[in-house]
Amino acid sequence: MNERTEHAMDSTPESGRRTVYDVVVIGGGAAGLSGALTLGRARRSVLVVDAGQPRNAPARGVHAHLGHEGTPPGELLAKGRDEVRRYGGELRSGSATGAERVGDGFRVTLADGGRLRARRLLVATGLVDELPDVPGVAELWGSDVLHCPYCHGWEVRDQAIGVLGTGPLAVHQALLWRQWSADVTLFLHTMDEPDEQQYEELAARGIGVVVGEVAALETCDGRLHGVRLASGQLISRQALAVATKLRPRAGVLASLGLAPMDLEMAGTVVGAHIAADPVGATEVPGVWVAGNVANPLDQVVAAAAAGVRAGAAINADLIAQETRRAVEARREPFSARLEREVCEVVLGDRRHGL
């Protein structure tokens, strides 16, 4: 066997045999592909399983990513997939529904009934933005309804921007968006009324405040035309900033005993995430996370960097295991335990008649 196949036996589902990869990456966004690329360049056998539901699909372009400014998200991911393949990585369309430990590795179950074997897992499934329940918000999400000024502020600079108040951070959000436009209006909607200091700050920055719930967004030719209040009043706006609930796609991690934890900003819960150390290692040995599933506030470039860090950490972990086994084999070339481990790698599920 060469170095690439030493710990991975390629096979097809039709043969009844299962493939054992060094690493299965679940999620093919910026984080997952960057991790897979790093591992492929480290001469690891890698398979990326991707459901094809990137969080930033509605966006027109990726921003603040040096060298890729304004690149459409789909184009960036297509280039990333090509780069992963260039270094021997494999990609498979589908969703992972669960995972379980088998020996010192894992078995991953897919929605189509397929099963994969891996020595390590990197989960980069991202998150889902739960939008405010206001008619028109979902339809304009990613175009005229926005959440991050660093992602979209330049594109709506100097426009009439509204901020939908749904929680305690809305005043902060309005003050933030004021950097990109002098015409910012805060719609109190369902948030608590600002205190005196907050009103003073808003007034000092020339930010208007509108009392009353928002009933719907009005459009014209597919673009935002204005914000309709429950009172019937229509206030003209060209863009609307909203706060979303950041819900990680963590179903496959739940099967491994990893549950999302609340994520707070300034004492307010804004979503949830999977806890991990700085390189993405979770409390379950052999399982790493990267990207928005772990750090919901990361932009694309930060998610990609997290994938690189996790990929390097996984490779180092595998090297440590392989070194231990090599030392043991040198000291004790023939042992029942080593024979069992070889059988697990070579035979996989067939050893158990599966």
Rank of each mutant, 00 (worst) to 15 (best):
L110P: 07
A111Q: 15
G113K: 11
G114V: 05
R115P: 02
R117G: 13
A118M: 07
A118R: 06
R120M: 04
L121P: 08
L121N: 11
L121Q: 10
L122S: 11
L122G: 12
V123H: 10
V123W: 12
A124Y: 06
G126Y: 08
E130F: 01
E130D: 10
L131F: 00
D133Q: 13
V134A: 10
P135E: 09
G136V: 10
V137A: 04
A138S: 13
E139K: 06
L140G: 03
W141C: 00
G142W: 04
S143H: 13
S143P: 00
D144Y: 04
C148F: 07
C148D: 15
P149G: 02
Y150L: 13
Y150F: 13
C151L: 12
H152S: 12
H152N: 14
H152E: 03
W154L: 15
E155F: 01
V156R: 10
V156E: 04
V156F: 08
R157S: 14
D158G: 04
D158A: 15
D158C: 05
A160P: 01
A160W: 00
G162A: 08
V163M: 06
V163C: 07
L164E: 02
G165H: 11
T166C: 11
G167C: 08
G167F: 06
L169D: 13
A170W: 01
A170R: 03
A170L: 06
V171N: 07
V171Y: 08
V171A: 08
H172I: 04
H172Y: 10
H172F: 08
Q173C: 05
L175F: 12
L175D: 04
L175H: 12
L176V: 14
L176C: 15
L176M: 15
W177C: 06
R178W: 01
R178F: 01
W180R: 11
W180Y: 14
A182I: 05
A182W: 04
D183V: 03
D183N: 14
D183T: 13
V184W: 03
L186M: 09
F187A: 10
F187V: 09
F187Q: 07
L188G: 06
T190A: 11
T190R: 13
M191I: 07
M191W: 05
M191G: 12
E193V: 13
D195Y: 10
D195E: 05
E196A: 14
E196S: 14
Q198D: 09
